[in-house]
C-alpha cells in the first residue's frame, strides 16, 4: 500500500509513491538519492539526519515521509554552491569544525535555523542550540567557532581569525 506525496526538496518538486511508514530520511536518501543527510542512530539522539522542513530544523529520522507531504525541505545539497559556499560551510572549513564529516551536514542544517532565529548568539546559546546534534570527533570547540564565524559573516561583519589559538 502506498500513497502519493509531493515534497519540494532544495527547490525541486517531487511526487513520490511511498509506504505510509517510510521515514523521511529514507525518502531523502534512498528514493531521492540525496545522501548528504546521514543516519547515526535509531533514537533521534544524534541529529546527523537534521534537515530544514519549512525553514525549521528537524530530525528526518523522526518524521514520516507522509507527514512532510506538501512541505518544502532543504538538505545539505541545497545549501550553497561549490562556487559560493554558504557562510556556515565556509566557517566549518575555515575553523576546522569537522573531522570525519559525518555529523557535519546535520550540524550545518541545525545551525542554519539557530542563526536565523538568533543572528548574534553567545557561546552558551550556540552550545545549547546544537545540543541535539552529536559530534564524536571535534570536541565541539571548533564547531562553536565555525558558527560564530558564520554568524559574523551573515551579519556583514568582519569574520574572526581562523588561525588556531594556543595557550
Amino acid at each position: 500500500m502506498t500513497r502519493d506525496i509531493t515534497v519540494t526538496i532544495n527547490g525541486e518538486q517531487h511526487t513520490v509513491a511511498v509506504e505510509p511508514r517510510l521515514l523521511l530520511v529514507h525518502l531523502i536518501r534512498e528514493k531521492l538519492n540525496l545522501t548528504g543527510t546521514h543516519i547515526g542512530c535509531d533514537t533521534s539522539s544524534c541529529g546527523a539526519c537534521t534537515v530544514l522542513i519549512n525553514g525549521k530544523s528537524a530530525k528526518s529520522c523522526t518524521i514520516l515521509a507522509v507527514q512532510a507531504d506538501g512541505a518544502s525541505i532543504t538538505t545539505i545539497e541545497g545549501v550553497g554552491t561549490p562556487e559560493a559556499l554558504h557562510p556556515l560551510q565556509e566557517g566549518f572549513r575555515e575553523c576546522h569544525g569537522l573531522h570525519c564529516g559525518f555529523c557535519t551536514p546535520g550540524m550545518i542544517m541545525r545551525a542554519m535555523e539557530l542563526l536565523e532565529k538568533n543572528p548574534n548568539p553567545t557561546e552558551e546559546e550556540i552550545r545549547w542550540g546544537i545540543a541535539g546534534n552529536l559530534c564524536r570527533c571535534t570536541g565541539y570547540n571548533n564547531i562553536v567557532k565555525a558558527i560564530q564565524y558564520a554568524a559574523a559573516k551573515l551579519r556583514g561583519e568582519e569574520t574572526p581569525s581562523t588561525e588556531p589559538e594556543f595557550v
Partner: peptide
C-alpha cells in the same frame, strides 16, 4: 595550519560513506 582538502566534499554533503553506496 592549512585548511583541509577533504572538507570541500564533506561540507557540501558529497562525502561517500558506505551507506551511500547503491
Amino acid at each position: 595550519p592549512i585548511k583541509r582538502k577533504e572538507d570541500i566534499r564533506f561540507i557540501q554533503g558529497k562525502g561517500r560513506y558506505v551507506d551511500d553506496i547503491k
